[in-house]
Design a protein around this nucleic acid. Structure first.
Lengths: 209, 209
DNA sequence: TCGGCTATGTTAGAAACTCTAACTTTGACA
DNA sequence: TGTCAAAGTTAGAGTTTCTAACATAGCCGA
C-alpha cells in the first residue's frame, strides 16, 4: 500500500498556536485513514487526532467532511493518471502491450490503494461538488480511447474503438472491485493477472468487430 | 426500482404495545432506505421512524446496525439468484442465450436495486458475521460456471470453463458498477446493453482458448 | 516599531446517531 | 389464573459533524 512516510517538521506536537501546514496534513491523514478503515469508516475527528488539532480546525480549510474526501479523491486520480501515462510510455506506440499495461495500472492501483480507488469509483454523486473532478474522468478515459484507436490503426477514435475501449474498461473495473472486495482470492494458484489481462486484451482487440 | 407496496395490517399506528411484525418491517424499511439514500447513509433511527417504534426497539431483533444491513443483503442475494434461475430456464440448455440472459439479470438487478447491489458486492468484510451469507456467493457463482461448462459441451467445469466464466463475471460486474455509479450514461444513444452483452459473450465464449 | 487585519487556531455546544440499561407491557402457557 | 419471557419503552452515555464565539499570531502599512 501507498504510504508517505516523510513527516513535516511540525508533524508531532507543534509548539506554535498556528499549525502552518494543516490543510496538506489533514489530506494526508484522511488518505491514510481511508486506506486503513475504508472510506465509509473515516471520521473527521480521527483525522484531527492524527494531526493534533481540535475537531473544529478542519472547517477552516474544508466546508465539510466530504470535501476532505474529495481532496483525497482528486489527488488520487492525478496519481493514477500519471501511472497510466508512465506505463504506456514503456512500450512502442500502437502495440498491444500498451493496452495491457493500462489494464495493469488500473488493477494495480486498485490493489495498492483500495480505499482511494473506492473514493474515485465508488458512489460518486458528490463528485459534482468538486471543481474539476468531473472533468478528470472523461479526460483520463479519453486517453485510453486514444490508445485503443492507435492500436487499431485508425485515424481517430471511431465507434468501434469506443466500443472496444469500453469493454476493456468494464473488464478491468469489474476485476478491480472483485479483487479488493475479496470476491476472488488473488492468491488462488489458478489466478494469473497478467495472463488474464492479455487474454482479454486479445479477445477484445483482435479479430472481427 | 423494486418496491413492496403491500402493507401489513399494523403498518401504520399500531394500537397494541407490541408490534407483532417488527423484524420483517424493519428489514423492509432498511431496504427502502438503502435504495433511497444509499447503504452508507442509512440510519437505524430513520428506519425506526419509518416503522413507528423507538430507536431502541431494533436491538431486540438485531445485534447492531450492520446486522440489519446483512439481513437485507441476504434477502437480496436470494432474490437475485431466483431471477438468474428463472431467466436461464427460458432458453434451451447449452445455448448462448442462457449465458447472455445471466448477464442481463446481473446488470438488470444492479440497475433495479443499486442499493442492495452495493450491499451484496460492496465492501463486504462483514459478510463473515452473517450465517450462510459467505456460502451463497460461491454457490450462485457455481451455477454460472455450470452454465458456461454446459455451453462449452464439457462434462464438468474444467479450467477453461472457469476462466471464461470469470471473464464474463468480471465484465458484467464492472458494467454494473459503471452504470449505477453513473460513470457511463446508459441513455447515451450509442449504448445498447443487449448488443454489448452479446458481443462480449461471443468474444469470451467462442473460438480458441 | 507599532497597531490592526485577517487567517487560522481554540473551546463550547447543538443536533443526530448507535447502542446499553433499566423499566413496562402483554401474550402464552403451565 | 399467575408467572415468565419476549418485545416494547424511556433515559442516557458516548461519538460524531458542524457552527458560533472567542483567541492567537503572522503580516503589512504607517
Amino acid at each position: 500500500m501507498y504510504r508517505i512516510m516523510e513527516k513535516t517538521e511540525k508533524s508531532k506536537k507543534r509548539e506554535s498556536y498556528h499549525h502552518g501546514d494543516l490543510r496538506a496534513q489533514l489530506i494526508e491523514a484522511t488518505r491514510v485513514l481511508v486506506e486503513d478503515k475504508g472510506p465509509d469508516h473515516f471520521s473527521v475527528s480521527e483525522a484531527c487526532r492524527e494531526a493534533g488539532v481540535s475537531t473544529a480546525a478542519p472547517y477552516r480549510h474544508f466546508k465539510h467532511k466530504d470535501e476532505m474526501l474529495l481532496a483525497v479523491t482528486k489527488e488520487g486520480m492525478d496519481r493514477k493518471y500519471q501511472r497510466m501515462v508512465a506505463a504506456v510510455e514503456q512500450h512502442p506506440e500502437g502495440s498491444l502491450e500498451r493496452i495491457v499495461a493500462l489494464g495493469q495500472v488500473y488493477v494495480g492501483f486498485a490493489r495498492d490503494e483500495p480505499g482511494v480507488f473506492r473514493l474515485i469509483f465508488g458512489n460518486t454523486r458528490d463528485h459534482k461538488m468538486h471543481e474539476g473532478l468531473m472533468e478528470d474522468g472523461p479526460r483520463h478515459y479519453g486517453f485510453v480511447e486514444g490508445e485503443v484507436a492507435a492500436f487499431l490503426g485508425r485515424g481517430g477514435v471511431d465507434e468501434d474503438a469506443k466500443e472496444r475501449a469500453f469493454m476493456l474498461w468494464t473488464f478491468v473495473h469489474g476485476l478491480s472491485f472483485l479483487l479488493i472486495d475479496e470476491k476472488v482470492s488473488s492468491t488462488d494458484h489458478s489466478f494469473d493477472l497478467d495472463r488474464l489481462l492479455l487474454q482479454v486484451a486479445r479477445r477484445v482487440m483482435i479479430d472481427s468487430a
